[in-house]
Write a protein that binds this DNA or RNA. Structure first.
Lengths: 296, 296
DNA sequence: GCAAAAGTGTTTGACGTACACCCATGG
DNA sequence: CCATGGGTGTACGTCAAACACTTTTGC
């Protein structure tokens, strides 16, 4: 019944004699772009605090890229999936578990790590800022939440005889009180008669380790795509929130202002109203909503 | 100027003394779901031939999964990216290069390969069927193009006290003249107050090796998403084609019929008309179109 | 002539954009 | 009272769905 191979062995027999070959293998790291939304201070007693999109980075304490900032992450172990590795690292780094985690892609550029052959299986994580208190600095490791800015610098199109090359150039700015990191990343789409290909590249990079500028850019683009069209942004919210708070989160992710009435119609199916109200200051109290579990 | 670490070494000095640690590393395979669209025979002299979505599979000639069908692929080498490895394997397998290639994700389930620790960095490839003539069977390897069927079997929602679990069950059917493979895959979304997670699993599987049923399901879902909203499906078309042919390709990917007038308006910006006509049989000749390079 | 497909127009409803307006609060 | 935000209604434009209709070919 059981199939046997050319040497007459069943699968079990074959597995017992199997020894992995000695060809070269890469290390695989699970790296994460961890986002949260924080509130700035407010000056006026009437005004609401502004929201800020923030990304967690770790300052490297050793070579390579000593002193540069990198995404949190670590190597995947044989007894866990890459996603479990990411969740483990996130717990070690921030103390938070049970968060939204989504695979972005795997970055395998040759020479992306000067030490050795290392691939990065990258994830995006979204956390309600209330859940993360202290950034549990491991030993000499320094962690910081950087304010995120991401904007289109240039959009360029070049016509070929049979095809077309289109390039988007975006500027990534990451800021804390002390630090400001700037990187410029490009997305190039080459359309030819037989195929289309997309290439991401780093045009300039000041202060970020490895190819992490590229990974962060992919994360922001994915976050924006998903924010339109899914309820993913609700993973950044606390259990109860006002619609204006939610709108501020959308605005800070998408990098543009939205109209109140339209926004409320758009998210109507994603949230459910509660009987509670936020007792603000200076204006009419606003109803608190919670996530709606029906929403697709 | 150059930063030095605790031991007073610059990055170059550090790299010279660096030796990779001896922790365990995984093998990384680049696997591909290669799609094409073929035409069936037509009986009636008036009727157009029906289109069929097809997927390339390789019958395994050795353990493990001896005799089962698997996605084409191979191990990534240290001097190439995973995408280059996929392109190389595709060239070796089908003789075709310069095709549309898109990363689907990396599958890292523990125990997905009974031999050893192997991750699969998976890609989707789209080829115009006219470009692939013979499936260059390597040695004893058998390759075949399977007709693809993918349909929703059940959609289930379970309400929790604080959250919701939703499960989609889909049936994957792959057919040649001789073979029929059936697999059932599930996508489970668990929404809790703090986070949302998505899990894919294989409920049943007859004839497919490894976790490839899951990878194929992800590929089909990605292909469907991308077909709505991008011009990705044009990578399956020859240089010149009629709008009805293009519509048939959309229909066979999406698994549903589309209205002609609406379809033509939808793809109007993606194609450009040429001065050529297809001389058919039994009805009015139709204008040939080509891909439009402006289309975003 | 007629079956099959090529190709176009019109109506309808959903949805997003934009703007206008009234309500409630604390200082 | 008034600045600020909470909350809702209405008009307009775009786009996809649905259907109807005319045109052109080979046998």
């Amino acid at each position: 019944m059981e199939p046997v191979d050319r040497d007459g062995r069943t699968e079990r027999e074959w597995l017992e004699q199997y020894r992995p070959g000695e060809y070269e293998r890469p290390s695989v790291a699970a790296d994460m772009a961890v986002f949260t939304v924080t509130s700035a201070e407010t000056d006026n007693y009437r005004k609401l605090p502004e929201k800020e999109l923030r990304l967690l980075l770790i300052r490297r304490g050793g070579h390579p890229f000593l002193g540069k900032w990198a995404l949190p992450g670590g190597f995947v172990r044989p007894d866990e999936t890459a996603e479990q590795a990411a969740a483990r690292e996130l717990r070690e780094e921030t103390g938070v578990s049970d968060v939204y985690l989504e695979q972005l892609g795997t970055f395998t550029e040759v020479g992306r790590d000067p030490r050795a052959w290392v691939m990065s299986c990258s994830y995006m994580a979204l956390i309600d800022s209330a859940r993360v208190q202290v950034q549990a600095g491991d030993d000499a490791e320094e962690a910081a939440w950087f304010k995120v800015g991401y904007r289109l610098l240039r959009e360029q199109k070049e016509q070929l005889d049979e095809g077309c090359v289109k390039t988007w150039t975006c500027e990534l700015k990451l800021r804390t009180e002390e630090e400001e990191l700037t990187a410029v990343v490009e997305r190039t789409v080459t359309a030819k008669p037989t195929s289309t290909s997309v290439v991401h590249s780093i045009a300039s990079n000041d202060g970020l380790a490895f190819d992490h500028a590229k990974i962060i850019a992919c994360a922001i683009e994915r976050l924006r795509e998903q924010t339109n069209g899914t309820d993913i942004a609700l993973n950044l919210m606390p259990g109860r929130f006002t619609l204006t708070e939610l709108q501020q989160v959308y605005e800070v992710i998408l990098g543009k202002e939205l109209l109140k009435a339209a926004f409320r119609r758009k998210v109507a199916d994603l949230v459910t109203e509660t009987d509670h109200y936020a007792d603000h200051a200076g204006h009419r109290p606003s109803r608190l909503f919670r996530r709606n579990w029906e929403g697709v």
